[in-house]
């Protein structure tokens, strides 16, 4: 038995070796390499009408969500995108989705102002046979969406904390500060939790923590208070690059430069600052603003019955969670094209 298995293994690896070195494509192996499938995915198929609705663009990141979705849709000749523009009134957003249902669109990509509040109408759409793709803020019923695209808030904290650890690992007793977003939101709590847990891995902790409200003005206020409270800081993580505009202003006003700063969400102006190395930001962690665009792609694939390119699975997955990478001077060029303008 044992011997048989080993010979089989050897034979298999020999086969794999020839497959790798040989230039002639292997007909059987080619099937799950799916390079061909990927090309087929981009080829025009059946026409897909997609309805898109998101909250009001009162924030650079949110504006980028809709813009990226629109830009993605124009890349496909078989996609007709109907965008209803942002609203923070759930009553109005529900009626927008009802309009999509009346129009019998093929798919709805929905970033709800409030996931729970939009669940009933999303269920209605699914019952009407429409493919609903939920983006960023989750519905509270698994039946309300065919597929969900999510960012990783906890992962943002972990990425930021790990980066701080790397830079400060030889300096025990370093002072780490944190400027959070709206403190009562679960996403803020997740980010802070990930940050604290990653820091604990290298014996550091958050020494000073303040919270802002995702706006430039609140960022300036929170940072000014923080700089007063902490006379010496080694590292500062700010959860959000939009409020970061205010944070940077406060730092410049104070004339402090003893610490490095890590941003959050990944705006283009912070990435340009990292690239030019002319400000407090030395890194930022990404919360992708291309989630809506990914929602458009998933909706198109799901309606056309295609699979997700490089996966073996024949159906579009139920959930796609995006990664929160750290952007530094070394890799900024890779991320700058998809960054959002705040």
């Amino acid at each position: 038995m044992q011997f048989k298995r080993i010979t089989l293994l050897v034979a298999a690896s020999a086969l794999a070796l020839t497959a790798c070195t040989g230039n002639t494509p292997e007909p059987q192996g080619g099937g799950n390499q799916s390079g061909g499938v990927k090309v087929a995915n981009d080829e025009p198929g059946k026409k897909v009408v997609i309805g898109f609705s998101a909250p009001a663009a009162d924030h650079g990141w949110m504006a980028a969500i809709t813009n990226a979705a629109k830009a993605e849709a124009t890349k496909y000749s078989d996609v007709e995108l109907r965008v209803v523009e942002g609203t923070n009134d759930v009553n109005l957003q529900i009626s927008q989705v009802e309009t999509f249902i009346n129009d019998k669109v093929d798919a709805i990509v929905l970033l709800p102002f409030d996931g729970a509040a939009l669940t009933p109408v999303a269920l209605k759409a699914m019952k009407a046979g429409i493919t609903v793709i939920n983006v960023d803020r989750q519905f509270d019923s698994p039946f309300a969406a065919r597929s969900t695209v999510l960012g990783d808030n906890y992962g943002m904290g972990v990425s930021a904390g790990t980066y701080v650890c790397e830079r400060l690992k030889d300096k025990p007793g370093s002072v780490v500060a944190e400027i959070a977003g709206i403190d009562s939101l679960p996403l803020t709590q997740d980010r802070s939790k990930g940050f604290a847990e990653a820091l604990a891995g290298c014996g550091l902790k958050v020494n000073n923590r303040v919270a802002a409200e995702f706006t430039v003005e609140s960022g300036e206020r929170a940072a000014a208070n923080l700089l007063q409270a902490a006379p010496k800081i080694d590292a500062l993580w700010n959860h959000d690059d939009d409020q970061g505009v205010g944070v940077t202003a406060a730092i410049k006003n104070s004339g402090r430069s003893e610490f490095f700063m890590v941003g959050g969400a990944g705006s283009a102006n912070v990435m340009r600052e990292i690239k030019a190395d002319n400000g407090p930001h030395k890194a930022t962690v990404i919360y992708p603003s291309t989630q809506g665009a990914d929602g458009i792609r998933l909706a198109r694939l799901a309606v056309q019955g295609k699979s997700l390119g490089d996966l073996v699975e024949v159906e579009v997955p139920r959930e796609v969670q995006l990664y929160a990478p750290v952007v530094t001077k070394d890799n900024v060029d890779r991320y700058l094209p998809t960054a959002f303008e705040s």
């Binding site: 923070n88 009134d89 759930v90 009553n91 102002f113 409030d114 729970a116 509040a117 669940t119 009933p120």
Partner: peptide, 16 residues
Amino acid sequence: MLIARTTTGSATHGGL
């Protein structure tokens, strides 16, 4: 009516 329409109550309801 809004609770019924959204199946939720929230401090953000009724904005403006």
